[in-house]
Protein backbone atom coordinates (compact mmCIF):
# COMPACT_ATOMS: atom_id res chain seq x y z
CA UNK A 1 0.00 0.00 0.00
CA UNK A 2 2.63 2.47 1.07
CA UNK A 3 4.80 1.56 -1.85
CA UNK A 4 1.97 2.08 -4.27
CA UNK A 5 1.25 5.46 -2.77
CA UNK A 6 4.84 6.59 -3.07
CA UNK A 7 4.87 5.47 -6.64
CA UNK A 8 1.75 7.45 -7.33
CA UNK A 9 3.28 10.57 -5.87
CA UNK A 10 6.36 10.33 -8.01
CA UNK A 11 4.49 9.91 -11.24
CA UNK A 12 2.88 12.96 -12.69
CA UNK A 13 -0.49 12.20 -14.24
CA UNK A 14 0.86 12.85 -17.69
CA UNK A 15 3.30 10.00 -17.35
CA UNK A 16 0.71 7.72 -15.84
CA UNK A 17 -1.71 7.99 -18.70
CA UNK A 18 0.23 6.13 -21.36
CA UNK A 19 0.82 3.32 -18.93
CA UNK A 20 -2.88 3.00 -18.35
CA UNK A 21 -3.65 3.03 -21.99
CA UNK A 22 -1.26 0.16 -22.42
CA UNK A 23 -4.09 -2.32 -22.03
CA UNK A 24 -5.73 -1.37 -25.28
CA UNK A 25 -2.48 -0.80 -27.12
CA UNK A 26 -1.03 -4.23 -26.46
CA UNK A 27 -3.99 -6.09 -27.84
CA UNK A 28 -3.19 -4.94 -31.31
CA UNK A 29 0.11 -6.75 -31.26
CA UNK A 30 -1.28 -9.94 -29.78
CA UNK A 31 -3.84 -10.11 -32.54
CA UNK A 32 -1.15 -10.28 -35.15
CA UNK A 33 0.86 -12.75 -33.11
CA UNK A 34 -1.91 -15.30 -33.18
CA UNK A 35 -2.74 -14.88 -36.82
CA UNK A 36 -0.40 -17.70 -37.71
CA UNK A 37 -1.74 -20.00 -35.06
CA UNK A 38 -5.22 -20.18 -36.53
CA UNK A 39 -4.19 -21.70 -39.78
CA UNK A 40 -4.23 -25.46 -39.67
CA UNK A 41 -3.51 -26.47 -43.22
CA UNK A 42 -5.16 -23.77 -45.27
CA UNK A 43 -3.93 -20.26 -44.79
CA UNK A 44 -6.26 -17.62 -43.55
CA UNK A 45 -5.63 -13.96 -43.82
CA UNK A 46 -8.31 -12.16 -41.93
CA UNK A 47 -10.41 -12.62 -38.89
CA UNK A 48 -14.11 -12.26 -39.29
CA UNK A 49 -16.63 -12.10 -36.51
CA UNK A 50 -20.02 -13.57 -37.33
CA UNK A 51 -21.58 -10.78 -35.32
CA UNK A 52 -19.46 -7.96 -36.77
CA UNK A 53 -21.13 -4.56 -36.75
CA UNK A 54 -23.24 -4.31 -39.85
CA UNK A 55 -23.82 -1.33 -42.09
CA UNK A 56 -27.35 -2.47 -42.78
CA UNK A 57 -29.17 -2.11 -39.49
CA UNK A 58 -31.60 -4.79 -38.46
CA UNK A 59 -35.20 -3.69 -38.68
CA UNK A 60 -36.84 -4.71 -35.44
CA UNK A 61 -40.58 -5.21 -35.39
CA UNK A 62 -42.30 -2.20 -33.90
CA UNK A 63 -38.83 -0.71 -33.58
CA UNK A 64 -38.44 -2.71 -30.36
CA UNK A 65 -34.90 -3.48 -29.31
CA UNK A 66 -34.85 -6.89 -27.63
CA UNK A 67 -32.53 -5.71 -24.82
CA UNK A 68 -31.55 -2.34 -23.40
CA UNK A 69 -27.80 -2.46 -22.87
CA UNK A 70 -27.28 1.22 -23.51
CA UNK A 71 -29.08 2.79 -20.58
CA UNK A 72 -27.92 5.70 -18.44
CA UNK A 73 -27.41 5.40 -14.72
CA UNK A 74 -27.15 7.91 -11.91
CA UNK A 75 -25.23 7.45 -8.69
CA UNK A 76 -23.68 9.59 -6.02
CA UNK A 77 -21.34 8.72 -3.20
CA UNK A 78 -20.14 10.55 -0.11
CA UNK A 79 -16.83 8.87 0.63
CA UNK A 80 -16.12 11.23 3.50
CA UNK A 81 -18.73 12.93 5.62
CA UNK A 82 -17.01 13.30 8.91
CA UNK A 83 -16.22 15.25 12.02
CA UNK A 84 -12.56 15.46 12.93
CA UNK A 85 -11.63 16.05 16.54
CA UNK A 86 -8.38 17.19 18.12
CA UNK A 87 -7.43 19.33 21.11
CA UNK A 88 -6.09 21.99 18.76
CA UNK A 89 -9.34 22.38 16.91
CA UNK A 90 -12.04 20.31 15.30
CA UNK A 91 -13.39 20.49 11.81
CA UNK A 92 -15.89 18.94 9.46
CA UNK A 93 -15.05 17.54 6.04
CA UNK A 94 -16.89 16.10 3.09
CA UNK A 95 -15.66 14.48 -0.09
CA UNK A 96 -18.10 13.10 -2.61
CA UNK A 97 -18.95 12.65 -6.22
CA UNK A 98 -21.92 11.92 -8.41
CA UNK A 99 -22.16 10.71 -11.97
CA UNK A 100 -24.75 10.29 -14.65
CA UNK A 101 -24.37 8.53 -17.94
CA UNK A 102 -23.77 5.37 -19.95
CA UNK A 103 -21.02 2.78 -19.91
CA UNK A 104 -18.73 5.03 -21.93
CA UNK A 105 -19.80 8.63 -21.43
CA UNK A 106 -20.56 10.14 -18.09
CA UNK A 107 -20.79 13.52 -16.45
CA UNK A 108 -19.11 13.69 -13.06
CA UNK A 109 -19.54 16.19 -10.29
CA UNK A 110 -16.90 16.03 -7.58
CA UNK A 111 -16.91 18.14 -4.49
CA UNK A 112 -14.90 18.39 -1.31
CA UNK A 113 -14.28 20.92 1.42
CA UNK A 114 -13.37 21.45 5.05
CA UNK A 115 -15.21 23.59 7.54
CA UNK A 116 -12.93 24.78 10.35
CA UNK A 117 -13.81 27.39 12.98
CA UNK A 118 -16.76 28.44 10.86
CA UNK A 119 -14.50 29.01 7.90
CA UNK A 120 -14.66 26.95 4.74
CA UNK A 121 -11.40 26.06 3.11
CA UNK A 122 -10.05 23.49 0.66
CA UNK A 123 -13.33 23.86 -1.21
CA UNK A 124 -12.87 22.19 -4.52
CA UNK A 125 -15.64 21.47 -7.02
CA UNK A 126 -15.21 19.87 -10.38
CA UNK A 127 -17.52 19.26 -13.30
CA UNK A 128 -16.01 16.67 -15.59
CA UNK A 129 -16.80 14.71 -18.69
CA UNK A 130 -15.65 11.13 -18.27
CA UNK A 131 -14.84 8.71 -21.05
CA UNK A 132 -14.12 5.02 -20.46
CA UNK A 133 -10.86 4.14 -22.20
CA UNK A 134 -9.85 0.72 -20.91
CA UNK A 135 -11.13 -2.10 -18.77
CA UNK A 136 -10.61 -0.17 -15.58
CA UNK A 137 -9.79 3.45 -16.42
CA UNK A 138 -11.60 6.59 -17.46
CA UNK A 139 -10.20 9.82 -18.82
CA UNK A 140 -11.82 12.85 -17.27
CA UNK A 141 -11.70 16.46 -18.38
CA UNK A 142 -13.52 19.61 -17.39
CA UNK A 143 -13.36 22.50 -14.99
CA UNK A 144 -12.44 22.91 -11.35
CA UNK A 145 -13.48 25.82 -9.20
CA UNK A 146 -11.94 26.50 -5.81
CA UNK A 147 -14.89 28.05 -4.06
CA UNK A 148 -14.71 28.58 -0.31
CA UNK A 149 -14.00 31.46 2.07
CA UNK A 150 -10.68 32.14 0.38
CA UNK A 151 -10.17 33.76 -2.99
CA UNK A 152 -11.77 31.88 -5.87
CA UNK A 153 -9.63 30.16 -8.50
CA UNK A 154 -10.72 28.38 -11.65
CA UNK A 155 -8.86 25.65 -13.44
CA UNK A 156 -9.12 23.44 -16.46
CA UNK A 157 -8.79 19.76 -15.50
CA UNK A 158 -7.61 16.61 -17.26
CA UNK A 159 -6.96 13.33 -15.55
CA UNK A 160 -7.49 9.64 -15.17
CA UNK A 161 -9.57 7.77 -12.68
CA UNK A 162 -9.96 4.06 -12.18
CA UNK A 163 -8.87 0.84 -10.64
CA UNK A 164 -5.12 0.24 -10.76
CA UNK A 165 -3.35 -3.07 -10.38
CA UNK A 166 -4.12 -4.89 -7.13
CA UNK A 167 -7.52 -3.18 -7.01
CA UNK A 168 -6.10 0.11 -5.88
CA UNK A 169 -8.53 2.99 -6.46
CA UNK A 170 -6.63 5.78 -8.13
CA UNK A 171 -7.17 9.27 -9.49
CA UNK A 172 -4.61 11.65 -10.92
CA UNK A 173 -5.59 14.99 -12.38
CA UNK A 174 -3.59 17.82 -13.91
CA UNK A 175 -4.92 21.36 -13.73
CA UNK A 176 -4.10 24.61 -15.49
CA UNK A 177 -5.48 27.80 -14.00
CA UNK A 178 -6.83 30.90 -15.66
CA UNK A 179 -3.60 32.57 -14.50
CA UNK A 180 -1.44 30.06 -16.34
CA UNK A 181 -0.40 28.02 -13.31
CA UNK A 182 -0.27 24.29 -13.11
CA UNK A 183 -1.32 21.90 -10.39
CA UNK A 184 -1.72 18.19 -9.85
CA UNK A 185 -3.81 16.14 -7.52
CA UNK A 186 -3.27 12.49 -6.81
CA UNK A 187 -5.65 10.40 -4.79
CA UNK A 188 -5.65 6.77 -3.87
CA UNK A 189 -7.39 4.37 -1.58
CA UNK A 190 -7.53 0.69 -0.89
CA UNK A 191 -10.11 -1.52 0.76
CA UNK A 192 -8.84 -4.19 3.13
CA UNK A 193 -11.65 -6.55 3.97
CA UNK A 194 -11.29 -7.58 7.60
CA UNK A 195 -14.64 -9.29 7.31
CA UNK A 196 -17.19 -8.95 4.55
CA UNK A 197 -18.68 -5.90 6.22
CA UNK A 198 -15.83 -4.52 8.30
CA UNK A 199 -13.47 -2.75 5.95
CA UNK A 200 -10.26 -0.88 6.66
CA UNK A 201 -9.53 1.78 4.09
CA UNK A 202 -6.31 3.76 3.93
CA UNK A 203 -6.79 6.82 1.75
CA UNK A 204 -4.64 9.78 0.78
CA UNK A 205 -4.83 12.86 -1.37
CA UNK A 206 -1.86 15.02 -2.39
CA UNK A 207 -1.82 18.41 -4.08
CA UNK A 208 1.09 19.84 -6.01
CA UNK A 209 1.45 23.33 -7.49
CA UNK A 210 4.01 24.93 -9.78
CA UNK A 211 3.77 28.31 -8.04
CA UNK A 212 2.83 29.35 -4.56
CA UNK A 213 -0.51 30.98 -3.84
CA UNK A 214 -0.26 32.26 -0.25
CA UNK A 215 -3.86 33.51 -0.23
CA UNK A 216 -4.96 29.91 -0.60
CA UNK A 217 -2.20 28.41 1.50
CA UNK A 218 -0.70 26.73 -1.52
CA UNK A 219 3.05 26.34 -1.89
CA UNK A 220 5.15 25.44 -4.88
CA UNK A 221 5.88 21.74 -5.10
CA UNK A 222 4.17 19.23 -2.85
CA UNK A 223 1.75 21.47 -1.01
CA UNK A 224 -0.65 19.54 1.15
CA UNK A 225 -1.86 16.12 2.10
CA UNK A 226 -5.13 14.84 3.42
CA UNK A 227 -5.06 11.23 4.53
CA UNK A 228 -7.15 8.91 6.58
CA UNK A 229 -7.29 5.40 7.88
CA UNK A 230 -10.98 4.57 8.07
CA UNK A 231 -12.60 1.53 9.58
CA UNK A 232 -16.14 1.26 8.27
CA UNK A 233 -18.90 -1.18 8.88
CA UNK A 234 -21.20 -1.76 5.94
CA UNK A 235 -24.55 -2.07 7.65
CA UNK A 236 -25.73 -2.20 4.11
CA UNK A 237 -23.68 -1.55 1.01
CA UNK A 238 -24.98 1.96 0.77
CA UNK A 239 -24.62 2.93 4.40
CA UNK A 240 -21.44 2.51 6.40
CA UNK A 241 -20.56 4.43 9.55
CA UNK A 242 -16.85 4.61 10.30
CA UNK A 243 -14.22 5.61 12.78
CA UNK A 244 -10.89 6.87 11.59
CA UNK A 245 -7.74 8.73 12.22
CA UNK A 246 -7.18 11.48 9.71
CA UNK A 247 -4.29 13.73 9.00
CA UNK A 248 -4.47 17.02 7.16
CA UNK A 249 -1.32 19.07 6.82
CA UNK A 250 0.76 21.37 4.70
CA UNK A 251 4.13 20.33 3.36
CA UNK A 252 7.36 21.98 2.21
CA UNK A 253 6.86 25.59 1.10
CA UNK A 254 3.15 25.64 1.97
CA UNK A 255 4.03 24.64 5.50
CA UNK A 256 6.20 27.75 5.87
CA UNK A 257 3.46 29.92 4.35
CA UNK A 258 0.87 28.63 6.77
CA UNK A 259 3.31 28.83 9.66
CA UNK A 260 3.97 32.48 8.82
CA UNK A 261 0.21 33.09 8.69
CA UNK A 262 0.04 31.56 12.18
CA UNK A 263 -2.21 28.81 10.90
CA UNK A 264 -2.16 25.17 11.89
CA UNK A 265 0.39 23.39 9.77
CA UNK A 266 -0.92 19.90 10.33
CA UNK A 267 -2.95 17.80 12.74
CA UNK A 268 -3.80 14.22 13.41
CA UNK A 269 -7.42 13.88 14.42
CA UNK A 270 -9.86 11.30 15.62
CA UNK A 271 -12.62 11.11 13.11
CA UNK A 272 -16.16 9.80 12.95
CA UNK A 273 -18.29 9.74 9.86
CA UNK A 274 -20.59 7.98 7.46
CA UNK A 275 -19.91 6.68 3.99
CA UNK A 276 -23.08 6.46 1.96
CA UNK A 277 -24.24 6.31 -1.61
CA UNK A 278 -27.31 6.06 -3.72
Amino acid sequence: MRRALLLAVVLAPVTVMPALAQGSATTGTTATATATATATGNTKTAYHAADAPSSTPVVYLGNMKPVMDHASYFHGILDEFEGRYAPGGSDFRWDGEAWYGTDYNRVWLKTEGTLEHGRLHDGDHELLYSRAISSYFNVQGGVRADIDDGPTRTWGALGVQGLALYEFEFQATAYVSDRGRFATRIEGSYDFLLTNRLILQPQAEFNLYTKSDPARQAGAGLSDVDAGLRLRYEVWRKFAPYVAVSYAGYLTQARRIVHDQRGETGALRFTFGVRSWF
Binding site: G23, S24, T26, T27, T30, A31, T34, A35, T38, K44, Y47, H48, A49, A50, D51, A52, D103, Y104, A132, I133, S134, S135
Partner: peptide
Protein backbone atom coordinates in the same frame (compact mmCIF):
# COMPACT_ATOMS: atom_id res chain seq x y z
CA UNK B 1 -13.23 -16.62 -36.43
CA UNK B 2 -13.27 -13.28 -34.64
CA UNK B 3 -9.74 -13.78 -33.37
CA UNK B 4 -8.84 -13.13 -29.78
CA UNK B 5 -11.15 -10.55 -28.26
CA UNK B 6 -9.64 -7.19 -27.41
CA UNK B 7 -8.95 -6.22 -23.83
CA UNK B 8 -11.04 -3.09 -23.64
CA UNK B 9 -13.79 -1.30 -21.80
Amino acid sequence: DPGPPPINV
